[in-house]
């Protein structure tokens, strides 16, 4: 315990410094402002462009049998939703839609995080700062500080974008009486109200586990770079992995069935599949928990690999270290030369 405490000494300083620098970076300020602006104008813009072009769903009328025993003849009807009417086909479409939206969200978070972390770790190495830092702070504190600061930043950025989106919805429904609004649809049903707390928790836990998986991998790949020109390649490796997982998850979401269940259990893919499949009822809670457990083991193994070789990678200079070289280093307890 004291060893862990020693290894994490200085974590607070690394975290706050990295976070403040992320906030101060001009590129980040601009991109966050653009995203917030897009979120703010998204609903009014959609409302303006779609007004009159989208026909309101026609209610299906069911004929009720006329009242007997001299009662007034009456015709009752009930409105059934379009999806209920063609239930089987729409359920698959819902599943695909949920999977697609969630996968896009995860992909965006993952790619941005990977890019930040790889860049930040590689920057310290290519700027030849690592040795100076390592006198004061252990490599574990350095990488954990970076991962947490990027997580905080992403959380803050998404909270701000979400806030703008909510604001955009509220303002649209109030001032434009928009039918596009997620809060006040034409039938008065709120889509957001239909999202269960369990689904949100499932998404957050999966997202967190996925974030740690990709972040640790990004840290390792970043530390494997010795020159600025290596950074793009290192981040590219992680990005390809994320994109691949994204496509597989979207395809699995479209097909559903056992394929989506298997994908929900495979590490990396499960980040994309498990919560979406759980949300549409295609994955049971025990299977979701199993998926988390597998993902957690994967994170722990990556963290272990990171702990073994990160320090060695940081002071290594030369060509970009390949995955097999990292594994060889890990076998040698991180002491082996690359």
């Amino acid at each position: 315990m004291s060893r862990l405490k020693q290894n994490l000494s200085g974590l607070g300083h690394v975290l706050s410094f990295s976070f403040i620098q992320l906030l101060k970076a001009k590129g980040n300020i601009i991109s966050l402002a653009v995203f917030m602006l897009l979120a703010l104008v998204s609903v009014p813009a959609a409302s303006v462009f779609s007004s009159g072009s989208v026909p309101a769903p026609e209610p299906d009328y069911e004929y009720a049998a006329p009242a007997q025993d001299g009662e007034h003849l009456s015709v009752s009807y009930s409105v059934v939703s379009h999806s209920e009417h063609i239930d089987g086909r729409e359920k698959g479409a819902d599943s695909y839609f949920v999977q697609l939206v969630y996968s896009i969200l995860v992909m965006m978070v993952s790619i941005m995080s990977v890019s930040y972390i790889t860049g930040a770790v590689a920057e310290e190495k290519t700027s030849k700062l690592v040795e100076l830092l390592m006198v004061s702070v252990k490599p574990l504190a350095l990488i954990v500080g970076k991962i947490l600061s990027v997580m905080l930043y992403m959380l803050m950025a998404f909270a701000l974008v979400a806030l703008c989106f909510v604001l955009s919805n509220v303002l649209s429904s109030v001032f434009l009486n928009s039918s596009v609004s997620f809060f006040a649809g034409a039938d008065g049903v709120s889509l957001l109200k239909n999202i269960r707390a369990g689904t949100v928790i499932a998404a957050l836990v999966s997202l967190l586990l996925g974030y740690f998986t990709f972040a640790i991998a990004a840290g390792l790949f970043g530390a494997a770079c010795s020159a600025t020109e290596d950074v793009q390649g290192a981040a590219g490796g992680c990005t390809v992995l994320i994109m691949l997982a994204y496509f597989v998850s979207v395809v699995a979401g479209a097909f559903g069935g056992p394929m989506s269940t298997v994908c929900s259990l495979v590490p990396v893919l499960s980040v994309f599949c498990a919560p979406a499949q759980y949300a549409v009822g295609a994955l049971s809670l025990p299977l979701l928990c199993l998926s988390w457990a597998i993902q957690a083991v994967c994170v722990a193994l990556l963290a272990l690999l990171c702990a073994r070789i990160y320090a060695g990678l940081l002071i290594y200079r030369g060509g970009r270290v390949r995955l097999w070289q990292m594994l060889r280093m890990a076998r040698g307890g991180g002491k082996e030369a690359v």
Binding site: Q21, E124, K128, L129, E131, L132, V135, R317
Partner: peptide, 10 residues
Amino acid sequence: YLAEERGLYP
């Protein structure tokens, strides 16, 4: 410590 390979955050 003043390292041989010196650097600062650019």
